[in-house]
């Protein structure tokens, strides 16, 4: 620590590693109670997904608009050429990875419920309501 001037390090930073992939933290939950606005958890998820889908649709439209304007300006492309395009192997991988990223964005609220469930303590087995097989029979 001493060789680094101006105290950029903190005790809290001890044990942290550079080059760690942080992608799994993108959808991290914010600490604090999340209100339930709608009737059920399922409705909350649907709302979140719809909002995120709208976002990504808007983003995609902006990108397509950019592409078409640039290509048109340069006189490079006509619309029928887009319809006949087939990606090469590299482009295929990149495009599939982009789908993965899109899905993580749209499915955030489901992922966060999984995080929350993981954080939740296991229920006390003695408190569980056990269905008596003989009664059912």
């Amino acid at each position: 620590m001493d060789e680094v001037p101006h105290g950029i390090h903190t005790a809290r930073g001890k044990g942290l590693k550079m080059s760690e992939n942080l992608n799994h933290l993108v959808n991290k939950n914010a600490k604090g109670r999340r209100p339930q606005f709608l009737g059920t958890k399922a409705e909350e998820h649907l709302m979140s997904m719809t909002m995120a889908l709208m976002q990504e649709l808007a983003v995609t439209r902006e990108r397509v608009d950019t592409l078409e304007r640039v290509l048109e300006q340069k006189g490079i492309l006509t619309k029928p050429e887009i319809n006949s395009f087939t990606p090469d192997a590299n482009a295929e991988i990149e495009r599939q990875a982009a789908h993965g990223k899109l899905i993580a964005s749209v499915m955030r609220s489901m992922e966060q419920e999984v995080h929350a469930l993981k954080e939740q303590a296991a229920p006390d087995a003695s408190q569980l309501h056990v269905v008596d097989d003989e009664q059912v029979a």
């Binding site: 390090h9 942290l16 991290k28």
Partner: peptide
């Protein structure tokens, strides 16, 4: 709703 708030450090000198 800022996950980790202002203070959470993820890497050295974050």
């Amino acid at each position: 709703c800022m996950p980790g708030s202002y203070h959470t450090e993820l890497i050295p000198n974050d």
